[in-house]
Amino acid sequence: MTKMIGQRAIASLLSLLGLMVLVFFLSRLTGDPAVLFLPIDATEEMKQQFRALHGLDLPLIEQFARYVWDLLHFDFGESLRKARPAIDVVLEAYAWTLPLALITMGLVITTAIVLGSLAAFNVGGFFDRLVSIVSLVGASAPDFWIAIVAIVVFSIGLGWVPTSGVGTPLHWVLPIAVLFIRPFGLVVQVVRGSMLSALSAPFVKTARAKGVKNLPLIFVHTLRNGMLPVITVIGDQAAALLNGAVIVETIFGFPGVGKLMIDSILQRDFNVVLAAIMVTAVAIFIMNILIDIAYGLLDPRIRH
């Protein structure tokens, strides 16, 4: 196991490097930050000065070499717009995104597995249909629509929670609730589907035919076999959350990495974009390693 993690870490480092190169050059295809930082009637000389101050006037390959060199010294460069180290900006935002993602995913996993499994046991029944329809409607409703309606209803109408911002735990209720809906809908469907497949596996059929009344036992065994695709989908959704919940953050004024990312991309703040992507990537790589470990634990045959 340790060896596998070691190998994965090295491989992930290579991926990170590839990602960095890709982002560095692709983002620089998208235009000149100087014209966005400066007002529209800025002189050419001012633009030139801005580029020179941030090394944007150098040949691309030299910019890249400098960036890599600084990176080797753990320097992610300076934000072009905020005049402070890019990595500080990103980590501050991450300190908000991480708890948001973890709490949401925790809630999603527990509720989806329980409800999805129950639906599978009751396939075709009322409860199954109810869970399917409710979760699907939730998962396919546009989130900014839900978010704004939620503010109108729960903050203005009922006055239960603040409209937006961060501060008290109450401020987290609406963002988490809105974020929860879509991954929940997806995961519950996949849990249900996998459980159905697993339930029709020979050993479960045999057990049921023999009249094993120990439902919990069946539940646990089936769950174990049905978990592989579930974990994959959970991973996919968690990765999306780790990338920041752009819409929810934008609407609720939540200072997470999603809002930072879209702002930096639109403003061509290359260093912040790069730092944000690399920090996110590290989080996602760690999560993927955890997922692969989970695969191995659930199904020993996969273990190499």
């Binding site: 704004i148 503010i151 409209t163 911002g165 934008t250 004024g253």
Partner: peptide, 18 residues
């Protein structure tokens, strides 16, 4: 000074007294 990019939310904040 706080920051919200959604006009509906900004208006709502004044309405809610925030």
């Amino acid at each position: 000074y706080v920051f919200r990019s959604e006009p509906a939310v900004r208006a709502a904040m004044v309405e809610a007294g925030e």
